[in-house]
Design a binder for these strands. Sequence first.
DNA 1: CCGTTGACCCTTC
DNA 2: AGAAGGGCCAACG
Length: 105
Amino acid sequence: MKPEGDFQQATYAVVARIPKGRVMTYGQIAALCGHPRAARVVGQIAHFGPEYLPWHRVVKKDGQLASGYSYGGKEAHRRSLETEGVVVIDDKIESIDKYIWWPAG
DNA sequence: CCGTTGACCCTTC
DNA sequence: AGAAGGGCCAACG
């Protein structure tokens, strides 16, 4: 096997573990991968990441949706979140702090 | 191997 | 409260 990057695999694993109706910030995912400052890398991986992963559950720390959501734009991003019960207003998640999920609980 | 890039985060004005 | 700049880290050419 040729490890193309443990960080990528770790990111995929973390994103895949985000439960329905919850969201995570890039910083958190990066931290879980072992690099709390590598939020940018998570973004890059996310853009080229597999479509079967719930990238719509990954948002900024402010709760604002991603900038270049490749799978239908912010409109699709917002609908996906609302479908899971997340309230999105003006391309931003309302009370993001309530929807933030952490693997510890 | 070195340089550039990016779906970010934090501090300061 | 909003806007601007710098820093950080890994993947890609």
